[in-house]
Simulated assay, not measured.
Amino acid sequence: MLADGVLVVGTGLLGTSVGLALRRAGVDVRLRDTKAEVLNEAIRMGAGRAESPDDAPAALAVVAVPPEAVGTVVADVLSSGDASYATDVASVKVLPAAEVRARLADSGRYVGSHPMAGREISGPGGALADLFEGRPWVLCPDDQTDQQVVTRALAVARLVGASPVTMTIDDHDAAVALVSHAPHLVAVLMAARLVDAPAHEVRLAGPGVADVTRVAAGDPALWTEILAANAHAVRSVLTDVRRDLDRLLAALETSESARADLYQIMRSGVEGRSRLPGKHGAEHTEFATVAVVVDDRPGQLAKLFADVGAAGANVEDVRIDHSPGQPLGMVEIDVRPGTDVTLRDALTERGWNVHA
């Protein structure tokens, strides 16, 4: 069904990652971007080839442009015959769907989609062939959608290693407001507290604040477009957050009842986090952590992971924290409960400084 190849329009992080993953699966990928230098970088990375005027219509166009441009690009690709069907990968779906319908009489050849994957690094240089592996890829067909475009978009999602999920456009935008857009804003607000903070305070920052503010490093221009396109759903989530923040401020009093309410708020955080899916979308699992002190010297991480592999441990997650002002780092390795003791013993025998 993808024998005629895939046209990727927009060779930023997501578009280039789609190209890399499809090329790995043996699909003919042709690339298009309005910026020649961006297109050439994606081609150099192996994400596909530049489209040619002699190309037959692609089986599917994957439009990877900002939300406000999706409608125009999809209409152009389908009207020109450059592709038989089209999907997009924008992180909002209501706005693109409305604009495609407004611009295209035969809008059934388009289906909105959204891979729930990304990085704080923008541009083709941040692209990864395995970016989508195990991640949900949402498809949003409606009663006017041609089954062929759904079939082809599903094929792309599966070929890149994602897990397809079907939702309405309204349900999708409400969901991403909760799990992506509002959390991004909370991270931004917390990171903004650091701008004018005294240097001696910021110097104490550890992995906790780094984890909380990680996504705040995303492209401000792109995120402004995303948030503007999903403003209503994001406002709804933030209104609830504001209510909880007011409750938290009241709980930070000195009375015994306030202390009990503070505990309940903290407890709700534990319960909410436990609902997050685990690796590859599996049920959430709490792992045991093995913390190892590593010298900041070339080859140390490779040696550590080789020793972890020799010990027979399956690494579920890993975090690296550098000690401020010290040539040392702490590597935290998450493993299945029950295997952590064996791993600690094995690494200690190999000379590693393992924290209890």
Results as ranks from 00 to 15, higher is better:
R103T: 12
L104S: 06
L104F: 08
L104M: 12
S107A: 15
S107W: 13
G108F: 05
G108D: 07
R109L: 08
R109T: 07
Y110N: 01
Y110P: 01
V111D: 02
V111A: 04
V111E: 04
G112D: 03
S113W: 03
S113A: 15
M116G: 02
M116N: 02
A117N: 08
G118C: 11
G118Q: 10
E120F: 13
E120L: 11
I121K: 13
G123D: 09
P124M: 05
P124K: 01
G126H: 04
G126T: 10
A127P: 04
A129C: 09
A129G: 14
A129E: 14
L131Y: 01
L131C: 08
L131F: 03
F132V: 12
F132P: 03
G134R: 03
G134D: 08
R135D: 03
R135E: 08
P136A: 07
P136L: 08
W137Y: 14
W137G: 02
L139F: 05
L139G: 01
C140Y: 01
P141M: 07
D142W: 09
D142C: 08
Q144F: 10
Q144H: 14
T145N: 05
T145Q: 08
T145R: 06
T145V: 07
D146H: 13
Q147I: 11
Q148N: 11
Q148K: 14
V149H: 00
V150K: 01
V150N: 00
T151Y: 03
R152E: 06
A157M: 06
A157R: 00
A157C: 11
R158S: 11
R158P: 05
R158F: 10
L159R: 13
V160Q: 00
P164I: 07
V165W: 08
